[in-house]
């Protein structure tokens, strides 16, 4: 009887002390948030953190509707999305939890090692079609892209293409792994992938955003000190009135321990 009472007491106390929070959104940040949530729950047995994916857009619209506490996003919140949150009378809070660098990759046999942003724009918008135009062999360029639904697609378009459209016949692959596979087996291929996906099957090119003055190879170090240009922040969004509830978890993610997990997953720490 005593034992039963004891168990009931534990149950009641854990129910009242429970800090349930939901995180929803980007599939890019999904593995990171999952790992962080796991570690956080191990350290704080009373807390529950539920992490689901679905895409950055899905997460932000859930935040607007109030069905999630934190929206994880691989792109910056859009103007009209911010607008909707303000219309509902909430103030939006933004936290950068990590950074992700995009590497431009080509086939390992490709002799081209340096490309400027302007050349990349030409290649992905279809104005440059042969490798010899950018100092390579006489070979047709085959650009690979992600599907239009991906946050990576949007970020690349914004950063490298300066909001211009991709060429209409671009090869679009359903996953980053498929891009690595295809670029690795196609001589004239070029594609973009997250830094964590770099392998010996593909070669990363050095990129210049200052019209060819300096070329930088993608690496965690270069992305961290700001010399590698194609870096995107990964965000957590929440509304100010939930701050008390979500703060402990976000503080944990931003702590030294949490940021160590960021590096382990293959992203760049935000500190």
């Amino acid at each position: 009887m005593k034992k039963l009472f004891f168990i009931a007491a534990i149950l009641v106390s854990s129910l009242t002390a429970v800090q349930a929070q939901k995180i929803k959104g980007s599939d890019t940040t999904l593995p990171l948030s999952q790992k962080e949530a796991e570690d956080y729950m191990n350290a704080h047995p009373s807390a529950t953190v539920t992490v689901t994916g679905g895409g950055s857009g899905v997460g932000i619209s859930a935040l607007i509707e109030g069905t999630t506490d934190i929206a994880q996003s691989s792109r910056r919140i859009k103007f009209e999305e911010k607008q909707k949150i303000q219309e509902a009378g909430n103030a939006l809070k933004e936290v950068v939890i990590a950074y992700d660098a995009l590497a431009i990759v080509v086939h390992p046999d490709n002799k081209v090692t340096n490309l400027t942003r302007e050349q990349l724009e030409g290649i992905f918008s279809g104005k440059i079609t042969n490798w010899k135009e950018v100092g390579g062999a006489d070979l047709k360029i085959v650009p690979y892209s992600r599907e239009t639904s991906s946050g990576t697609y949007e970020f690349f378009k914004e950063s490298v293409l300066k909001n211009k459209n991709y060429l209409s016949g671009i090869m679009s692959m359903p996953a980053t792994g498929a891009i690595v596979q295809s670029v690795g087996q196609t001589k004239g291929a070029i594609g973009y992938i997250g830094l964590a996906y770099l392998s010996k099957d593909v070669k990363a090119v050095h990129v210049s955003y200052d019209r060819g003055k300096t070329f930088t190879a993608p690496s965690v170090k270069a992305a961290k000190d700001g010399t590698y240009p194609i870096v995107r922040p990964l965000y957590y969004y929440y509304v100010a009135k939930n701050e008390k509830q979500v703060k402990p978890f976000i503080d944990y993610v931003l702590s030294t321990k949490g940021q160590k997990t960021v590096s382990e997953i293959g992203f760049i720490p935000s500190l």
Binding site: L139, V142, A178, Q181, S182, Q185, T186, G188, A189
Partner: peptide, 17 residues
């Protein structure tokens, strides 16, 4: 993707498989 595509690319000498 892993078998046919590279094979077709080599067999017909194409830029993409």
């Amino acid at each position: 993707l892993v078998v046919l595509v590279p094979f077709i690319q080599k067999a017909f000498n194409l830029p993409v498989g």
